[in-house]
Simulated scan of single mutants.
Amino acid sequence: MKKLFYLIVGCISLVIGVAGIVLPIVPTTPLLLLAGFCFARSSKKFDVWLRNSKIYDFYVADYAETKSIAKERKKKMIWQIYLLMGISIYFAPLLPIKFMLVVLTVFITYYLFKVIPDK
């Protein structure tokens, strides 16, 4: 029963995390970390599959293994974030939502460059 619970939570977090690649408000990396945590406790097959996937390697592997991200990788990530957040801010229908998206973008930038150490 416990393994089934972890498998279901892992699959859900994987799907939402993958959606977060194109949806700027959905956090991709934490959800992929959660999926890895759940798969490690539920299914060796899913755990190996996730760790060998390009998505895991691109978004999670550095941080999961070293608790740091290379500076060049951070620069690539921030441009993607700025592009997607810029599109979201442009199309947001209400001024308070636009403001909240700008604040979120500033927070993400701060967290990425000041809280997460460079590799």
Rank of each mutant, 00 (worst) to 15 (best):
S88N: 05
M85P: 02
L112I: 12
K75W: 10
K75V: 08
L101W: 06
E72C: 03
K98W: 07
S68L: 08
F107L: 12
L104V: 02
V115D: 11
P93A: 03
V103G: 05
A70F: 00
I69T: 11
V106K: 00
K67P: 03
L112W: 00
Y111D: 07
Q80R: 12
A70I: 01
L95H: 05
K76N: 11
L94G: 05
M77N: 10
L112H: 04
P93F: 05
L95S: 02
I87G: 00
I69C: 12
V103P: 04
I78P: 04
K76C: 03
Y110M: 10
G86A: 00
I116Q: 01
F113H: 06
K71P: 07
F113D: 01
I87Q: 07
P117F: 01
I69N: 11
A70V: 08
K74Q: 05
K75Q: 11
R73P: 04
P96H: 00
W79M: 13
L101K: 10
L101R: 07
T109S: 10
A70E: 11
L94E: 15
D118A: 10
K76D: 11
K98P: 07
Y111S: 04
I97P: 04
Y90W: 13
K114E: 11
K71T: 13
I97N: 01
F107N: 05
I89D: 03
S68Q: 12
P96W: 06
I89F: 08
P96F: 02
A92Q: 06
F99V: 14
E72R: 15
V103A: 14
S88E: 09
L83A: 15
L112G: 05
K76W: 13
W79R: 12
T105V: 10
K98E: 03
G86M: 07
T109Y: 09
Y90F: 14
K71I: 10
E72Y: 14
L83G: 15
P93H: 01
L101Y: 07
R73T: 14
K74W: 09
K67F: 12
F113T: 03
L95T: 12
T109M: 02
K76M: 05
M85N: 09
P96N: 06
F91V: 01
K71Y: 11
P96E: 05
M77V: 13
T105Q: 10
V102I: 14
